[in-house]
């Protein structure tokens, strides 16, 4: 019993420590990024990796999700004879919820895990120490460009996802089930307001920060955890951790933003 409580306590303490470190990393990185010299090419490089290289994945998953959504909404709405609302349903669902969340989860899987693994390996092989010893801030050199690229790339990817998902829904509704094109498009335009688009934008900005920051922190502070002394196995452990943690954070933040921003 006491043993179990001890384990619980240790887990809670460890999680709190990790949250503190992640927050600390954010503050230090913001501070370091504000110091000259400013370099933009590293950010472009990271945007290429996090954003541009994810386009194909985002397009494929976007079209698929849009089609699935169109299909399911159609079956439900057909029962009430209100397939006119198909456009509204698909558009609201994609722009407010599925676009930002699915994109963030895709970025976690594709780029987030790679960020953790890269930083974890750099930590275990002393590359981060080497940067420090060369008087180059690793926060600025390694973490900053990744986080900024994440904040910029995830919203862009989200809107590409939204666009192709709407196309997927259109394909199912209008092309397959012959919902009148006018009612589909007008339903979309009438239902979606600027506030919905803004909500999606705010969500994706926050998700971009969360995903890259959490994944970076897991790799960057690897040496401070139990995994630190385990070399390659430790890297795989923190990478799994990063994927789980950042995915949960995205879903939780999604709920929180939805509740606060309406």
């Amino acid at each position: 019993m006491i043993k179990a409580l001890e384990t619980l306590g240790a887990t809670v303490l460890e999680s709190l420590e990790m949250i503190g470190r992640t927050f600390n990393l954010l503050l230090v990185t913001v501070w370091e990024m504000l110091q000259p010299p400013y370099r933009f090419y590293p950010i472009v490089r990271q945007m290429y990796f996090i954003g541009a290289r994810s386009i194909s994945l985002i397009v494929i998953s976007g079209v698929t999700i849009g089609m699935v959504l169109g299909l399911q909404f159609y079956y439900i709405l057909e029962r009430f004879g209100s397939t006119d609302l198909l456009g509204s349903g698909v558009a609201l669902g994609v722009i407010r919820e599925l676009g930002p969340v699915m994109t963030a989860l895709m970025v976690v899987g594709r780029a987030g895990s790679a960020i953790t693994a890269e930083l974890g390996i750099m930590r275990t092989t002393n590359q981060i120490d080497a940067l420090e010893c060369m008087a180059i801030s690793p926060d600025k050199f390694l973490v900053g460009p990744k986080v900024i690229a994440g904040i910029l790339s995830v919203p862009l990817l989200t809107h590409i996802f939204d666009f192709v998902a709407l196309f997927g829904g259109y394909f199912v509704g209008v092309v397959m089930f012959s919902v009148p094109e006018g009612s589909y498009m007008n339903g979309m335009v009438d239902a979606v307001q600027w506030v919905d688009v803004r909500l999606g934008l705010v969500k994706s900005l926050i998700f971009g920060l969360l995903v890259t920051l959490i994944c970076a922190a897991q790799g960057y502070y690897m040496h401070l955890t139990k995994a630190g002394s385990q070399g390659a196995e430790g890297v795989s452990f923190v990478t799994t951790n990063a994927v789980v943690l950042s995915s949960i954070s995205v879903l939780f933040a999604d709920f929180l933003i939805g509740a606060l921003l309406q």
């Binding site: 722009i95 862009l156 809107h159 666009f163 335009v189 307001q193 600027w194 688009v197 999606g200 934008l201």
Partner: peptide
């Protein structure tokens, strides 16, 4: 894509 969402759909 963002402009499309904001202007053509979001009004």
């Amino acid at each position: 894509a963002f402009t499309y969402a904001a202007v053509n759909i979001g009004g």
